[in-house]
Design a protein around this nucleic acid. Structure first.
Ligand code: MN
Ligand code: MN
Ligand code: ZN
Ligand code: ZN
Lengths: 138, 138
DNA sequence: ACAATAAATGCACTTCCATTGCATTGGTTA
DNA sequence: TAACCAATGCAATGGAAGTGCATTTATTGT
């Protein structure tokens, strides 16, 4: 079991106090978060630092960005099977219309989508909207 | 063959000069447009009017909104088979990474997506990105 | 240990798009 | 014609993303 420090270093991410905190914050969250969510969790920190930290995580491919259609970019830690570095083979995302939370369905792969002749598919964004398990009352 | 005026009235949209112009603009476009696109096409008109016109068209369900992941909302006229009033049965959209245009693939229905137990799927946003037929050089 | 260097952070500012309040215009109806 | 309501125009706001630059902090070489 690697420590978080070792993990970050293995991804060529310099370890700082702020980065550790943000990583832990993301790790204990079960849902995708916005920059504002992180901002609210760390009121003392500057927004730019949080922004650049998440961008660093994204570049180093330990976080992926999610466009769930709300207009606000969300982020989540990449998990085993996430494969976000590969443009194909992305998992799908679920956005709850009730609680407004967005979660990765890592194990749910996006089916092969047929496109008309002449079109070349490079990657796919698939967001299912509806009611999540917590909100569906069961 | 209904006139545009008759069509708008049948949808409970009051006919104005501006609305006719915008409707025709959308109708002759083969791709989804942004508010800025409309703005550039009608420099004399105020941005707010264009904005509210497109929102009216959306409410009255003759236009649907497209989130193609560029961060800028796009709009396109609903066509036969569009069914955008019904939350299910949406068609897919294609965004070209080369020319940056987004088009409706109205005839391409979104396959049924399985979600885990407890989750209820209400609708789906599916955007395929890649190279369009014009840009793929054929 | 110290100086030189590079990276991370903080602050201010900007840009872009979406959206709203309110005054004005214009068209419809009694 | 007067009254009314919808459409339009102008101005301002707000939210989110992104950037320039100064400062602090960490790393490296001597
Ligand atoms: Mn995900
Ligand atoms: Mn469409
Ligand atoms: Zn929910
Ligand atoms: Zn193209």
């Amino acid at each position: 079991m690697k420590t978080i420090e070792e993990f970050l270093e293995s991804k060529n991410i310099r370890v700082t106090a702020m980065r550790l905190l943000i990583y832990k914050f993301l790790a204990e969250k079960l849902v995708a978060v916005t920059l504002s969510d992180i901002e609210n969790a760390f009121e003392k920190a500057d927004r730019t630092t949080l922004y650049r930290t998440i961008k660093t995580f994204e570049e180093k491919e330990i976080v992926h960005q999610i466009d769930d259609g709300t207009g606000i970019t969300k982020y989540a830690l990449c998990e085993k099977g996430c494969n976000c570095e590969i443009e194909t083979d992305l998992h799908l995302h679920f956005h709850c219309n009730n609680c407004n939370e967005t979660i990765c369905l890592t194990e749910h792969k996006i089916p092969q989508i047929k496109v008309p002749d002449g079109f070349v598919s490079e990657n796919v964004n698939l967001v299912v909207k509806g009611i999540c398990d917590k909100c569906s009352g069961q």
